[in-house]
């Protein structure tokens, strides 16, 4: 019984990490086709926004987290206005610009806040089961990640805005002739992506070392999860992240962490080879 819970906890923990790493990118890369190499820095901004407002402004943690998200949204909005909007339709050029942004942001954090910032303590407590003890906060993360995804699914696939957004990104010209304010849709979508990345930084901030490179810990996981999720990220994200975290946790369980990481990367290669349209492609196919 304990073993089962243990496995569930480990799997859920890995799953929530992949999901939260990926959600912001799922919007910006998965939907808008901007290869956002600065995704990690969006997460960094969320994390620093949270920690700084909790430490210096002494705000309670949930409010500090909201500030972290807000700061990331403002950053995303300005960035979209100045730079990103010129890159729509040239996804590959976005690599260079977003890499440049990532250099600027992470180095600016180093200059402003120094190489490290005192961390926060993980909220909530821990509980004991047999020989094992668990952090309650990490259990909460699993719930949070899945509920965010459900919300996104509703927002982008069921709501009015979602239909507009998808139509606009699919074919901006037709959308604009139908009276959609294309500009606005892009900006809002980008801001949502930024908010999600900021949220990831905010909720992981209490569990990690606060350094300017904190966001880079997420970037590889984020890209592999979004890509294996496929063309319709909100459908594919849960199966993709589940599959990848199942592989990683079980391999790490039997061998060790390095083999786990290698197995994760290998399974990404194989998934794309056999499911070139990712998990969402597979699901859509099965539905038909």
């Amino acid at each position: 019984m304990i073993i089962l819970f243990n496995l569930f906890y480990q799997f859920g923990d890995a799953l929530s990490f992949l999901l939260l790493a990926a959600i912001g990118l799922a919007v910006i890369f998965g939907m808008m086709k901007i290869i956002n190499l600065a995704h990690g820095e969006f997460i960094t901004i969320g994390a620093y926004g949270t920690v700084v407002s909790a430490k210096i402004l002494k705000l309670p943690l949930p409010i500090a987290m909201a500030v972290g998200v807000l700061v990331t949204v403002i950053f995303g909005y300005i960035l979209e206005r100045i730079i990103i909007r010129h890159l729509y339709g040239r996804p590959l050029d976005s690599v260079v610009a977003t890499w440049g942004i990532s250099l600027i942001v992470s180095q600016s954090f180093l200059v402003i806040f120094g190489p490290s910032f005192e961390g926060l303590q993980t909220p909530l407590s821990n509980f004991q089961l047999g020989a094992y003890s668990y952090s309650q906060y990490r259990l909460l993360l699993i719930l949070i990640s899945i509920s965010i995804l459900i919300l996104l699914y509703i927002l982008f696939l069921k709501s009015n805005f979602g239909t507009l957004a998808r139509a606009t990104i699919e074919n901006p010209k037709i959308a604009s002739t139908l009276g959609v304010k294309v500009d606005k849709v892009y900006t809002v979508t980008f801001c949502i992506g930024s908010a999600l990345a900021g949220l990831t930084g905010a909720i992981y901030a209490p569990t990690m070392t606060i350094v300017p490179s904190i966001g880079q810990a997420f970037i590889v996981s984020a890209f592999v999860t979004v890509v294996t999720a496929g063309a319709s990220p909100f459908i594919g994200l849960i199966p993709a992240a589940s599959f990848l975290s199942l592989i990683q946790t079980s391999v790490t369980f039997y061998y060790h962490a390095t083999i786990g990481v290698l197995a994760l990367l290998f399974s990404v290669i194989l998934i794309i080879r056999f499911l070139p349209k990712g998990f969402s492609g597979l699901l859509i196919k099965l539905k038909k």
Binding site: N6, Y9, Q10, D13, A14, F17, A131, Y132, S133, S135, R138, M208, A217, V220, T249, T252, F253, H256, A257, T258, V261
Partner: peptide, 20 residues
């Protein structure tokens, strides 16, 4: 004895293994 790649930042599984 467990070896962990430099890029790993999440340790729930490692912690459980140590407790076991």
């Amino acid at each position: 004895e467990e070896f962990i790649p430099l890029d790993v930042s999440q340790f729930s599984q490692t912690i459980q293994k140590i407790q076991a």
